[in-house]
Every structure is written in structure tokens, then in C-alpha cells.
């Protein structure tokens, strides 16, 4: 009774969720073991990761087959859209935790450490030389932390990366237009360009990290600047990677002839995700690199 308005597709029993849960748990459990020098840890982590990856692949393949078989009603399509929208909201809140930390540190913590407010004595007693600057070259105490020799400027690679991501948003929308006017060529070209731009972004980002580590000695260990810089841009990079993977899936599916102007939730879901990653980058660019 699929497809009929007012009815709903209830799937058969499925093995994948339990497998995926075990795979994810094994991945993290193995990671925790390996952090503490347990030799079995990395094995468990890789095995768990492999199980999770294969399961996700099978699960997605199954869902795509169902979609191509026309099992998805309009109601199901709405469910997917609602789900994706709220998933992206959860991602927004994940980044919000880090942006919250960034602003809290820059607006309050650093001035306080430099003696602002009622913290004059703290400043005098603990680290009287610290001036409260937002820079990895100045750390309150070098005990346990290694200061870097410089910061990553905004107007080199990061500015190019900003242009790349903004362009990729445009090519993706152009691909979407191609889908609407049934031009497979435009759809595929647009998606391929988007994937390529995403890949170039990642390559440049990796090079930038290499530069920062080698020439600026900027690491995780360079105090709060290094911590926020690497975790925030790193998580963003991880999201770009996931985005590129999803875009690649969409690209391959477009080449295989999937998606119609009326029925292409997967394309839109990935597009929303990609634009979200784009917006996060813009805020990162302003508050991590620029000001």
C-alpha cells in the first residue's frame, strides 16, 4: 500500500541498526583503549570502524533501492526532510558549543587573566607578565604549553578557501537548476565541480595545517588559541570531508540516472548540509582567522 496518501511504509525487520550500534561502540571503545597504550585497541577500533562503514553502506544502498522502487510516498519524503533539517540543527548546536567557548575565552577569560574586573590579584599572583592577548605566541604559562611563533593570517590560503567554498555553493545550486530543467549534463557537471572544489579545499587546508605546524610551531599544545583553532577548523574539515563523500554519492547516483525534478530528497539533503558547512566556514573565517 505504499505511495497511497494516508498510509505509511513500515519496514521489515532489519539487521543493520544493531550491527551499526555495535560497530560504532567498538570503534570508540578501541580508540579509548589505544589512547592508553593497549595494543588490541587499534585493532578493535579498525574492526569496529569497518563494521560500521560496511553497515552504513548496506543500509544506504537498501534505502536507495527502496527509493528507486518507488516505495517512498510524499509523506515519507516530508519525514526525510524534517529529519535532515533537525539533524543539521543538531550540528549547528555542536558547533555552537565551540563558538561559545571561543567567544567566552576571547571576551572574558583572557582579559580576566590579564587582571580585568576584580582579577587584579589573580593576575599579579599567577602570571603577571600575561597581557591577555588572543594569540598563540602569548600563553599565560609555558609550563606544559609551547608558544607558537605566529598566527595563521586570514588573507592567504584561508581567503582562497573562502572563495572556493562560496563558489562550490554556487555550482551546487547550478546543478540543482540543471536537475529542475532536466539537464543531466548540467546536473553532473555542477556536482562534479562542487566535489572538485571541496577536494581542493581539503588539500589546501591540509597544506595550511602543515605550514602552521612546521613554520609556526602551532599545535594543539599552543594554549587556548591552538586548541580552538585546530578543534574548530578540524571539525569543520571533518564535516567538509563527510560532505564531499555525500556529494560523491549523489554524483554517482546522478550519473546512474537517479533523481527526478519532483523526487530528489537525497540531493536536497546533501545540498542543505553543504550550505551549512559553508556558513560555518564563513563564521570561522571571520572569528578565527580575521578579527
Amino acid at each position: 500500500m505504499s505511495g497511497a496518501e494516508g498510509s505509511y511504509y513500515v519496514p521489515e525487520e532489519t539487521r543493520q541498526p544493531a550491527l551499526l550500534a555495535v560497530g560504532l561502540a567498538a570503534t570508540l571503545f578501541g580508540f579509548a583503549l589505544s589512547l592508553h597504550g593497549n595494543s588490541a585497541g587499534s585493532m578493535i577500533m579498525m574492526a569496529g570502524g569497518a563494521v560500521a562503514a560496511v553497515t552504513i553502506w548496506m543500509w544506504m544502498a537498501h534505502v536507495i533501492r527502496e527509493s528507486e522502487a518507488g516505495l517512498n510516498s510524499a509523506q515519507m519524503d516530508r519525514t526525510y526532510r524534517i529529519g535532515m533539517g533537525w539533524f543539521i540543527f543538531s550540528e549547528v548546536m555542536f558547533f555552537a558549543a565551540f563558538f561559545g567557548a571561543l567567544f567566552y575565552v576571547r571576551v572574558l577569560v583572557l582579559p580576566w587573566l590579564a587582571g580585568e574586573g576584580n582579577n587584579a590579584m589573580t593576575h599579579q599572583l599567577l602570571w603577571p607578565l600575561f597581557e591577555g592577548l588572543w594569540s598563540p605566541t602569548w600563553i599565560p604559562s609555558t609550563e606544559g604549553f609551547v608558544a607558537a611563533t605566529g598566527t595563521v593570517g586570514a588573507w592567504g590560503v584561508p581567503a582562497i578557501n573562502t572563495a572556493l567554498l562560496l563558489t562550490s555553493g554556487a555550482t551546487l545550486t547550478w546543478a540543482h537548476w540543471g536537475l529542475f530543467k532536466k539537464s543531466r549534463v548540467q546536473l553532473i557537471t555542477g556536482l562534479a565541480l562542487t566535489v572538485a572544489l571541496g577536494c581542493v579545499f581539503m588539500v589546501l587546508q591540509v597544506q595550511e595545517y602543515g605550514h602552521a605546524m612546521e613554520h609556526l610551531s602551532l599545535t594543539f599544545n599552543s594554549g587556548i588559541y591552538g586548541s580552538l583553532f585546530y578543534l574548530m577548523t578540524g571539525f569543520h574539515g571533518a564535516h567538509v570531508t563527510l560532505g564531499v563523500l555525500m556529494l560523491t554519492v549523489i554524483l554517482v547516483r546522478s550519473i546512474m540516472g537517479h533523481f527526478t525534478p519532483e523526487h530528489h530528497f537525497a540531493f536536497e539533503g546533501v545540498a542543505w548540509y553543504w550550505h551549512f558547512v559553508d556558513v560555518v566556514w564563513l563564521i570561522l573565517f571571520v572569528f578565527i582567522y580575521w578579527v
Binding site: 567557548a101 583572557l110 600563553i139 599565560p140 604559562s141 609550563e143 599545535t219 594554549g223 587556548i224 586548541s227
Partner: peptide, 23 residues
């Protein structure tokens, strides 16, 4: 943040690195 503070040397909750345990 806890994980990286514990294992990878970040300073989120460590004032001597410019972070703040109150954060």
C-alpha cells in the same frame, strides 16, 4: 574538549594555557 584536554594537550579548561576550568 575534555577528551583533547586529557589526551592531546589542549588548554580548554586549563588557565595556564589561557583556558578556564569555569568554562
Amino acid at each position: 574538549m575534555m577528551l583533547t584536554d586529557r589526551n592531546f594537550g589542549t588548554a580548554f579548561f586549563d588557565a595556564s594555557g589561557g583556558g578556564d576550568p569555569l568554562m
